[in-house]
Amino acid sequence: MRKLGVVWVLVWCLFAGQAQAQSAKAIIATGGIGGVYYYYGTQIAEILTKANALPATAIQTAASVDNMLLIRDKTEPDKKTYFLATVLPDTAYFTVTGKHEKFAEKPVKATILWMMYPNYLHLVTTAQSGIKSLADLKDKRVSTGAPGSGTEFTALNILKAAGIDPEKFKKWEKLGAKESDEALANGTLDAYFWSGGLPTGSIVELANTLKRKGLDLALVPLPSTDPGVAAFMNEFKGLVDPQVVKKEVYSLSDDVPTLAFWNMFVAPESLPEDLAYTVTKTVFENLETLHASVKPSKDTTAENTARFIGTTAIPFHPGAVRYFKEKGLVK
């Protein structure tokens, strides 16, 4: 009789967990169309929905900063509506600690579910523009990314570190990935910043468009020896690494030094532990689907995430940690 009672308790817990997942819903904040965030987040929503783990919808946003605002201001635990999001690590750190101006009075309470893939800072131009370094951006027509995006946050901070005032550009634009590509291809822009995975599909398409116009795609080198880059790296210690974009990625003439950041998939602290566990488990049990749909996601692996647990300035969600412990990757 006692054993029967235990069985009933276990069954009740199982159905209670399923009921909770069925009544809750997730909205996944991504980025602009053309960027990896958008396609990554859309695929995560499809995986969760098709597996009946949690009804999820992906939405287009201006990316990182906007996404953290949505987690802070639009998550409604009482209505079981939770915003999950893709975000750059520097943006996540500044918004969680209140160092970002929009979060100074009310930092976002967010946690990490898993690490996505390294984001590479692209300073996109043409070989014919004459732009060879950060310093060459002065008196040029430049876009620093969509307002409220992680790209904008990174671009403005690296320009500040280099002592470059965007107000003094010949023309200062604030465009998303797709709009920046079009402006560069149409000759109304000299260069633009973009932070994304390798390869970023819209930049691959841009390279082809430029070729048809007799132009060549180029990325401006951002080596750690550049004074502006060095100052930026010092400001964001532990959040940025010097990396290289191989010439084969975008059919460039040479490998290009740049900076890389590990993207994070984050959730509000208020996301129940069982739901955080279910979301994480479902995604990592369907990695083949994700990898086949989004090339940069090849770096989304349990092993890559496990090595960050316990080392990041932003904590991991207990539900996510539980999954990686079950896999034997975390003690």
Rank of each mutant, 00 (worst) to 15 (best):
S251H: 13
A16K: 08
K106M: 04
M115S: 10
T42M: 12
F83D: 02
N234C: 00
T301R: 08
I44V: 15
K331Q: 14
Y93I: 01
F83C: 02
E173D: 14
G5V: 12
G130I: 10
S23G: 10
E152C: 01
A135I: 00
K178I: 03
V204T: 15
S293K: 15
K170R: 13
T289L: 11
Q22A: 15
L159H: 05
K237Q: 14
Q60W: 01
A183M: 09
K331R: 13
F15K: 00
K138L: 06
Y93C: 00
L4D: 14
V249A: 08
G176D: 13
P55N: 13
T312G: 00
H122F: 15
P221G: 12
P227A: 07
S143V: 06
I27H: 02
G17S: 15
G17H: 03
K160P: 00
F103K: 07
T81A: 01
L121R: 02
P242L: 00
V6S: 11
L134V: 01
A62P: 00
Q243N: 09
P221L: 11
V283D: 07
S297A: 15
F193A: 06
T282W: 08
T97Y: 04
E182F: 00
P296A: 05
E105C: 04
K211L: 11
N263C: 00
L69W: 01
F236R: 07
K106Y: 02
M264R: 12
L219Q: 10
K298H: 09
